[in-house]
Design a protein around this nucleic acid. Sequence first.
RNA 1: GCUCCGUUCGUCUAGGGGUUAGGACACAAGAUUUUCAUUCUUGCAACAGGGGUUCGAUUCCCCUACGGAGUACCA
Length: 517
Amino acid sequence: MNKEVRVRFAPSPTGPLHIGGVRTALYNYLFARKMGGKMLLRIEDTDQTRFVENAEQYILEALQWIGITIDEGPSVGGPCAPYRQSERKPMYKQYALQLVESGNAYYAFDTPEELEAMRKRLEAQKVASPAYNAITRTQMKNSLTLPEDEVKRRLEAGEPYVIRLKVPRKDEIRLNDLVRGWVMVHSSAIDDKVLMKSDGMPTYHLANVVDDHLMEITHVIRGEEWLPSAPLHVLLYKFLGWEETMPQFAHLPLLLKPDGNGKLSKRDADAGGFPVFPLDWKFQNKETGKDETWIGFREQGYLSDAVTNFLAFLGWNPGTNQELFTMEELIQAFSIERVGKSGTKFDIDKAKWFNQQYLKNKSGAELVPFLQKELQQRQLNASPESLVRICDLLKERLVFAHDLWNQGAYFFLSPTEYDPQVVTSKWTQEAVTVITSYAAALDKLPSLTAEQAKSTLNEVLEAQGVKMGKVLQALRVAITGVGAGPDLMQIMEVLGKQATVARIQQALTVLNSKVIA
RNA sequence: GCUCCGUUCGUCUAGGGGUUAGGACACAAGAUUUUCAUUCUUGCAACAGGGGUUCGAUUCCCCUACGGAGUACCA
């Protein structure tokens, strides 16, 4: 009875994988690993009209970036191959036919126009829920209303048809959702869903149930948007005779817009200036013909560990005060029972905070590649040792990896301008006098360490009877051009004696006219 | 409209028939850092409303309100 846990992530390749999809994948993965089970990836590409080139590759890359490994899937194969529904097309029809034979499904020949006309008619009659169902199907062109020989004739003539599920008129369908508990729906609320489209492809509902059965999926963990169709799926399992092995369902709360209304969408990214995709997605806008990019977390400077941690907490929590989790820790701590029921607003501030925490916990050496990337873009260079030092000095003040440059450009470029706010308040005659002597004193040193820089400054200060607070900000702006940053003495050491003195002298010259009395 | 799901600080949430309703983000103040950031301390701030059940309800039940999802030959 203790079957191996098998879960699947089943996206459809219609564009870049949304961050909500990544979270669904993550929860599946955490659950699979926690239970010592298998994680499958299945590509649900039954809608050929919405298929997007490269989307599958994007999905794979996104999962890999986040640290999700797939046990079975299109790229790695497995005992249930193929894992793309388009490649499984021939497998579905027999199940649809099985349903027709058992009297649980039927052929329907209605044209789109006829369907539209039916809906219009029902609306005009003020029918509560216009649908193709137990009542209306008696008035449509299908194998339940048409004479048997005509059905046969139409089928043989190759007329287009679909296969619809014959939903019972009166039945109570119930399912025990792992997140929400018992959910009950009356069958009259479900319409006669199309199972097999006229192009011979199954719809999501059929393909999903058939594949989950064939792939021996034990737990279906997916977004809440599927909850309303879950009873339909239960019905399918029942009619197909698979009730005994029906997977357990767990419907995850939705990711909502930060400002309140609705599902998180691409628009929110544009409006809020934050990503809703894991990776950049480059494409050509069909309307304008222009190349566009939808920004991704990775390219925005988010660390994958931070994004994973952030996503894990969107709808789940460990019940303790611990917030920082490695993937391994998440696997240990994860349980579906602790998944929340209510929708979760997407709070980018929290994502930033996680990123900051992860950046801060890295060593200087680990951050060097990020800095190097920035330097390469600007064709700058520095010794590996100094890069490590710089990263160490800067890491506590980063939110994003690229802040290494924003916060520390002065390590590589002599200031060309000086923060006017600092200059107008701190560039006093007194400070200038001290700084002038200080530069001269530094110049006499054979080399420069932070220690020496400090003791030398103290000596000059003492000789002139000035307090450090009166000059340090001025000195900082002279050397870095800005009023904030890590320990100035450390900066000087990294810069070295020559550059430090040269920068001070340059500032003294440039700011000569700005001295305040 | 109809069906389903949900509702604890601004946000993410813990908790649970009797609690000073806890934590985190954000925000504010203070300390440290002669800067900024970090760090630390403190503060701010919530059980949607109405009925039950109960000695007692934020917690259980019902209703209402609000929010969300679904309602395609899309997934």
